[in-house]
Write a protein that binds this DNA or RNA. Structure first.
Length: 286
DNA sequence: CACTTGACCTGTCCGC
DNA sequence: TGCGGACAGGTCAAGT
């Protein structure tokens, strides 16, 4: 499910609500996805919430950091007791998201709030690292990660040079390589290529500097645009409050197979690249 | 070495 | 209505 914008939406929601809270108890119905002893973090106080690529971290007092990867269907839902009392009934979205057969772990806070880590397909994981270790050297512990596309470290020149590590691959496939640029997945790879008017089948080394610049802009614009709309919801994504995101209602190509391109007379088509669906308009993406 | 496919899991949707 | 197969936002490992 979650690519950069979705994890960012979760991060912003979480930090507003859990910074300063103390962990009281952690329940782990699916230990396979929880790769540490939950006992170690009881009594830890939340100092900071961060995102790097598609991963989300919670720094605790005592120098420990919890790191989540939600993979395809992971969710982090906060059951904020106070809000529920004040707000009345959970929304329909929330009813699906609350503790269920897909709850991997529940983090309970001293004030009674609960954070649920749900994951229907159970590809996701949560790990524990010493904070200093995980944050060292640009989070290299978490894997080989390219620049964050919404920071000044992400320039078109860096994008070009990173993508060119796989010169003869189709550009769409390489944009999803986390070591080239962090956080872009299947939805935003298609969307940013549409914005840049580049055919996803083009080999990386066939792009001109002008096209790398447009792609750089397209990645930033589509990610920011999605965050503005609360992220993308296909089936699973919800914010920590349990509400869905609306970016896909505004998407140009993703999931729009057969629909008319709104930029030219063409029609959106779907092809398969490296086993994943790619959506584009072959009329105006050259 | 470059690239593709399968595996990890479960659920949903579509065609017969 | 039921069943089988394809497919789903991500990442590894193994295979060609």
């Amino acid at each position: 499910m979650p690519e950069l914008p979705e994890v960012e939406v979760i991060k912003r929601g979480l930090e507003k609500k859990i910074v300063g809270l103390t962990l009281k108890e952690i329940k782990v119905p699916f230990p396979h996805s929880v790769q540490f002893d939950p006992h170690k973090i009881v009594g830890g106080k939340v100092l900071e919430v961060w995102r790097r690529a598609k991963m989300l971290g919670i720094n605790l007092s005592g120098g420990q950091t919890i790191v989540f990867h939600l993979k395809m269907t992971g969710q982090l839902i906060l059951d904020d007791r106070e809000e529920r009392v004040i707000g009345g009934h959970p929304t329909p979205d929330m009813r699906d998201s609350m503790p269920s057969s897909s709850t991997i772990a529940t983090f309970e806070f001293v004030d009674g709030g609960k954070l649920f880590f749900n994951d229907q397909r159970r590809f996701g994981w949560v790990r524990l690292f010493p904070t200093a270790e995980v944050e060292a050297n640009d989070f290299e512990k978490l894997g080989k990660l390219g620049p964050e596309p919404l920071t000044s470290a992400f320039t078109w020149q860096i994008l070009k040079s990173n993508l060119l590590h796989h010169k003869s691959q189709p550009v769409k496939v390489v944009i999803m390589d986390q070591s080239a640029v962090a956080g872009v997945g299947n939805i935003y790879a298609s969307e940013s290529l549409f914005v840049a008017r580049i055919d996803p089948r083009r080999k990386v080394d066939s792009l001109s500097d002008e096209e790398f610049k447009k792609l750089h802009r397209g990645i930033i614009d589509s990610l920011q645009n999605s965050i503005k709309h609360g992220g993308s919801t296909r089936a699973h994504f919800v914010s920590v409050e349990g509400s869905r995101g609306y970016f896909l209602d505004f998407a140009n190509v993703y999931g729009k197979e057969g629909k008319k391109c709104h930029r030219c007379p063409g029609k959106i088509q779907k092809i398969t690249q490296a086993g994943r669906g790619t959506y584009f308009c072959s009329t105006c993406q050259k």
